[in-house]
């Protein structure tokens, strides 16, 4: 079976982002970009399934401008067999991303699609679910454990009430939670090897996907700051302060 993995490039999770003073966006010039952490987990899981013999091929998919190629090479260095680069300079909303994946699925016929549960830039948490709907296949979101046997995936999901186990017939869409695995590090020889792995380049316009712009972002603002707090010197003072506020 073939596994398709979504591999988004985002502002590195260690960067404390700044909102532009005029409210038109966040500062991204010169800011470090990395793989979305949940996508690294998705790729790691796909590679482990290949190592177990469940899958033969792992394909990473990225959507973005021409220089996204370097990012996709990281996915190849981590171990993906090949990459697909859908080229567009426009920001792509989740529904459009799901429609792009749907087109690629028609062509690639994967047995499994693994995406991160959310991207840490837009925090939308939608693409995997939307893709499963368009494809009319099962979804297993927020996965913390995946087992594939006899054409079905048994997935443990992290839900508010605890851990939920569901069974999904393949093909299916799985989205990854943090606890699914610990992604491997890229080794230098793998970076060299990745240079000869294929990257298919597809122009967004050639896919016949309608870009979705139902949502327009009209303003960016920094979050409201909390006012400066006070320090107390011991437990008794803390209890007194909380009692005074009526909290204890």
């Amino acid at each position: 079976m073939k596994i398709i993995v979504g591999y988004k490039r985002v502002v590195d999770y260690n960067v404390r982002i700044q909102v532009k003073p005029d409210g038109t966006g966040v500062v991204t010039d010169g800011v470090k970009l990395s793989a979305n952490p949940f996508d690294d987990i998705a790729l790691e899981e796909a590679l482990r399934l290949r190592e177990k013999g469940v899958a033969e091929e792992v394909v990473v998919v990225g959507i973005g401008p021409a220089d996204l190629t370097a990012h996709l090479r990281n996915g190849l260095a981590m171990g993906a067999n090949r990459a697909i680069h859908v080229v567009t300079t426009d920001a792509v909303q989740p529904l459009t991303a799901a429609r792009i994946f749907q087109k690629l699925i028609e062509k690639e016929q994967p047995g499994l699609v693994i995406l991160g549960k959310q991207a840490i830039d837009d925090d939308a948490n939608q693409t995997g679910q939307m893709l499963a709907a368009l494809w009319d296949r099962p979804q297993a979101t927020f996965a913390s454990k995946v087992e594939i046997t006899d054409g079905k995936a048994t997935v443990t999901r992290e839900v508010d009430a605890g851990l939920e186990v569901i069974e999904a017939e393949l093909p299916a869409v799985i989205t990854t939670d943090l606890r699914l695995n610990e992604p491997r590090f890229i080794k230098l020889p793998d970076i060299m090897k990745a240079k000869s792995k294929p990257i298919d380049t597809i122009e967004f316009g050639s896919l016949g996907v309608e870009a979705n712009d139902h949502l327009k972002t009209t303003h960016y603002a920094a979050p409201a700051k909390r006012s400066k707090g006070v320090m107390v010197k011991d437990a008794a003072e803390l209890v007194a302060a909380l009692k005074q506020k009526g909290l204890l």
Partner: peptide, 15 residues
């Protein structure tokens, strides 16, 4: 709604 882990708040207009 919040983006970037709540480090920015955006105003969005739906169709």
């Amino acid at each position: 709604r919040p983006i970037y882990a709540g480090n920015a708040i955006i105003t969005v207009e739906a169709d």
